[in-house]
Write a protein that binds this DNA or RNA. Structure first.
Length: 333
RNA sequence: GCACAGGUGGGUGAGUGGUUAAAGCCAACAGACUGUAAAUCUGUCCCUCCUAGCGAGGUACGAAGGUUCGAAUCCUUCCCUGUGCA
């Protein structure tokens, strides 16, 4: 906090603003490390976690607490309600806006999160594809429900054989999106295919920032253990009550209620699982999720990996040292 | 102690004489991912070897024997587990 936050705004005369990205699987301690770094380097935290964007979902999303949020500015938490949703494109737009603001204030933006797709949308950008079309989607889903997803795959083979080869016949959401892209561009007469969009390099990357990525990668077994503890604590500290209230307010169909922890809590409330079974299932779901996150992040370029938890003090010192180098390198420019 | 029901790969659970190294599901591990992503999907999954294949060999369905050209599957004994009766 005493450092002169000399990583200025997007002014041609000024050095390029810096962006710190902190990624890692669930329960790896991102919140803790992000707070430490934000306090030390005059930073502001920009959420990159789909679940944490939803209002009223507190316990199960492991958002930073009110106390933690009062220590340093936090952005993009609690921006939609359970009835709404945030697409990757929408996230990227909002996050970029926040980034500019933070940089303009000469503070260090720290993007923190575990949603790989959102991060990619923010940093690399999405191709200029059409937005989702609700009625087309529900029509396609209906077809898939009666005739199987293979039916959609056959449609895609006609529309875009290259894409059809890359998307598995069982992967309903991706088939739907690909068909959506092909059809809606056809309506506009452009006849753009999904596979052509894939080929476009660079898409719409975030420009004007020097980016440093820090990744948390604690030892797998230790991570799983921590996930188990945390999932159980969620149940012990009110997840069931929270879920019940959300269920009453938004109904069972609200998408976030199908997410990690909430899904299992709802199953218990409906009597489908015992409480203990629900806890175990939630733990399992979190572990599986963490693994998928790591699969995604391993592909992320130029990550400085730190092999421990974010609340680990030695790790925090190491992370700080990296950030210091990063800032210093910038001043030399 | 008697009577039933069982003992299958990390788990669950099919299979009841032969194309069975043994379905399916789960876990584990690896991978993909371009607009609801905390979603969705894919691959591997007994061991060893290689020319890496719908390849070769070796182990394997509680244990030991037996029947059979051939057994996870049939018979015998034994050891465990659950339930019922004592």
């Amino acid at each position: 906090m005493n450092l002169p936050a000399d990583h200025g705004p997007a002014d041609p005369a000024q050095p390029v603003p810096l962006l710190l990205v902190l990624l890692g699987p669930t329960a790896s301690g991102k919140t803790s490390l992000s707070l430490a770094l934000a306090e030390r380097f005059a930073g502001e935290i920009v959420n990159c976690d789909s679940g944490a964007m939803v209002r009223e979902f507190e316990i199960g999303t492991a958002k930073p607490t009110a106390a933690e949020r009062s220590r340093v500015p936090h952005h993009l938490f609690d921006v939609v309600d359970a009835a709404g949703y945030v697409t990757a494109g929408e996230y990227a737009r909002q996050a970029r806006r926040v980034l500019r603001d933070v940089s303009a204030r000469r503070r260090l933006p720290i993007v923190v999160g575990g949603t790989g797709l959102y991060l990619r949308a923010l940093l690399d950008g999405l191709f200029p594809g059409p937005e989702r079309s609700e009625e087309l989607r529900s029509r396609l889903r209906e077809r898939a429900a009666t005739r199987g997803s293979t039916y959609l795959h056959r449609i895609l083979i006609h529309l875009d054989p290259v894409a059809a080869q890359k998307i598995h016949a069982n992967d309903l959401p991706k088939l739907v999106r690909a068909i959506e892209v092909c059809l809606s561009s056809r309506e506009k007469g452009s006849r753009q295919k999904m596979s052509q969009l894939w080929q476009q390099q660079g898409r719409d990357p975030l420009r004007g920032y020097r980016i440093m990525r820090l990744g948390l990668d604690p030892e797998r077994q230790a991570l799983y253990k921590r996930i188990n503890q945390r999932a159980r604590e969620m149940f012990d500290s009110g997840l069931l009550e929270e879920t019940q209230a959300l269920l009453a307010k938004y109904g069972a169909e609200a998408r976030p209620l199908a997410s990690l922890g909430y899904k299992q809590a709802a199953q218990f409330l409906r009597g489908e699982l015992s409480r203990e079974e629900a806890v175990l299932a939630a733990q399992q779901a979190h572990r599986n999720y963490a693994k998928r996150q790591m699969t995604w992040f391993r592909r992320e370029p130029d990550v400085i990996w730190l092999r421990s938890f974010g609340d680990d003090k030695p790790l925090q010192r190491k992370a700080s040292a990296h950030v210091e180098n990063f800032l210093a390198a910038d001043q030399r420019t």
